[in-house]
Design a binder for these strands. Structure first.
Lengths: 228, 228, 228, 228
DNA sequence: TATGAATGAGTGTTCATTCAT
DNA sequence: AATGAATGAACACTCATTCAT
């Protein structure tokens, strides 16, 4: 039994190694520019070996994105305790984002990179899909927004599905833009500050008229600016 | 006299044909996936002929994007008369967008496609660039926002540059997403409705607290839904 | 009659123009690198027009080489008066070369360029060809060498055909090498000095043993060094 | 142990195969006319496979030339024992050439082909270059000539550098010309006889006046004429 | 006569994928 | 399980040549 287990574990490790290497390369070069040779070289394996673990380049990339997305969802759902108000949950979402980003910037970039590819598909405009991270996130946000409407905090006229998609799109956009900046020059506080402002505007735009705006302020970057 | 003119016109038409075919393919497959061979096949020309009109793939694509961007800018600037209030200009911008989109959906998609490539560059986070359409649009929006702040209509705390970029990013995102939908299934009213809602939320988020929200309503799709 | 004549003359002029342009380009870029487009551009004609005068690139180049070779042959034969001794003729050949080279360096380069292509063919080793310049030159030299043997000046053991080919080959080689040097840096006196030395060594090698070497001295560059 | 060795050897053989095929094609068609496709076809491999062994066409060709040149240099230097007179060394050079040519005609052709490309460069007229075969050969010859002058055997008035270059040029020329002859028709004795005569003439031309010419006779083709 | 426009057949090079070992 | 070796299909780009006008 020990042996098969070890084999299983080693197999998983190899797979994780390949995904990690591929992920780093995607962040470095962009999806289109990464070749199987690059990945093989980085993982110190042969190209053929990669095909032992992934049936094609496309599916390898898909799995990478899926994983990063799931990690993010897991992180968020762990924090979401029942009984929170919509506004508390929105703020929690924001804080989770901040923390996760501070902790694992690259993973976040990959995750939103993933989302973007789904947003671009038909799903964004109605045809919804399976159990994939972007969709889960979309549902999560939508539920919060609906709860907020029910609580009388958000404008009843908003379309929760649409607003949910819009928020995700915006996050994706900014993160992706950040990813294009060379890693060493990337100052994450810019990214998070940018996002914070947009998120606040969006919140102000969806709350009921007359709602006290001071209650919509979000916390800023939680980590000290380690650069500059 | 007639002959040279006709030749000239035909030459222009060929060039336009190539750009149109290339544009459609970009919308269909994405920039990276389109090959010169694809374009040639679609235009029913030989690859070599394409090179008679454009010195390289890169410059062909650049010209396509530039043209669509410039067309949009021209359209807008023609409508912008001096003496308008910031809110009037914002609405005018919206109506121009609607009209232009109704008139030349593909062109709009290409234009925002173009913008996106610039947004992804460093410019999005501050380093600004030359006389290219996305930048002109960015400046235009920023000026309006600043004027709105001065008029006491928009929140003085907003960062006009950042909000300008956010608005452009959102438009790009939605348009681009729409572009991925197979043409026949694309219902433009979804696209414009989506955008209208987002634009309204954004406006509500940036006006001063207490500003009468009923003044922020935008007109909807101006053309009848020609599909379905 | 006047009209057809003028037409004829103009046709000849066009042809000459094309050949001149092509010739210059060959000298500048090397045979392989010159394209029909280059020639057309230089001659300020269309590519198609060139095909009106020459049926193919290959035949155009052939004609260029032929012409330059014939010019050289004509120049030499004009000077060769009967009754000269072999040694006098050898010196005359040398002087003609010097003069021609001084007068029309480019043409000489093209001519030997031409010769080289023939030397490389089977002809060099026996299978002789028609009335082409390299062959005429070969025969000319061979005749002189044979006369020299008959006069008792040259070693009877030499093979006139072979020595003739060797001399031509050497001239070609040096000229061609000179042609590769950028035109402005080309100091022809180096070329001619080099050639003079080799020619003298060759002469010393083919005269009978004991022949007074002081009689084999050749004149040097006849033109002042116009550069440097 | 056997396996890795065999793999190594097979890899070397493939590389050698490609170089041999490319070499033959160069001899057949000339450097400029040989395409990677031609080589692949001849080697019965795919174009992509060639790129497994050589990073580019240019480097493949460079390696071919370098190898043949180095082989020749190695062969010669192995035979050159110290204490030989200049004349002995000249004869040794000649014999080495003969033997090498008899043994590996193609290689010799390629080698001189290589040399030619260097002779055509500025080096031929003074600007000398690194450690490349043609230059090594040039220096070797020049040293011998200088030694001969010091021994009082060669004319003090000769320019050793220039004569060295001339000899190399001549060898190159003849060999290259031979290469153009279709292989089956190529009679190597013609080539070597031709060369022998020229080499003898050259020697007679550079020895001091009055030197006993019978001492300058070279041995002829050392192998029986295997053709005709 | 002259040419602008067009193209087929090529170039060198890359890369995801396969397979014998 | 792992891989070195191989390759087909693709890529952007070039050029000698043709042809309708």
């Amino acid at each position: 039994m020990g042996i098969t287990e070890r084999k299983e574990r080693e197999k998983g490790e190899r797979k994780a190694l390949i995904m990690r290497c591929a992920g780093e390369l995607i962040l470095e070069l962009g999806v289109e520019k990464v070749s199987m040779m690059d990945i093989a070289r980085k993982a110190e394996l042969s190209k053929a070996t990669i095909y032992l673990y992934f049936p094609s380049k496309e599916l390898l990339f898909e799995e990478i994105c899926l994983k990063s997305g799931n990690d993010f969802i897991d992180y968020i759902q762990e924090k979401m305790t029942p009984g929170l108000s919509a506004l508390e949950m929105m703020k929690l979402l924001w804080v989770s984002y901040l923390e996760m980003f501070g902790e694992s910037e690259d993973m976040m970039i990959l995750m939103f990179n993933n989302i973007r590819s789904y947003l671009e598909s038909a799903f964004f405009f109605g045809k919804e899909k399976e159990n994939i991270p972007p969709y889960i996130l979309y549902v999560l946000l939508k539920d919060i927004l609906e709860q907020g409407v029910a609580e009388g905090v958000f404008e009843p006229s908003i379309n929760p599905g649409m607003v949910s998609r819009t928020i995700i799109a915006l996050f994706s956009y900014i993160i992706e833009s950040a990813a294009r900046i060379p890693k060493e020059a990337r100052k994450s506080h810019v990214t998070t500050d940018e996002m914070k402002n947009i998120f606040e505007i969006m919140l102000r735009g969806i709350v009921r008229e007359g709602f006290d705006r001071s209650r919509l302020t979000l916390p800023g970057s939680i980590r000290p600016n380690h650069e500059e």
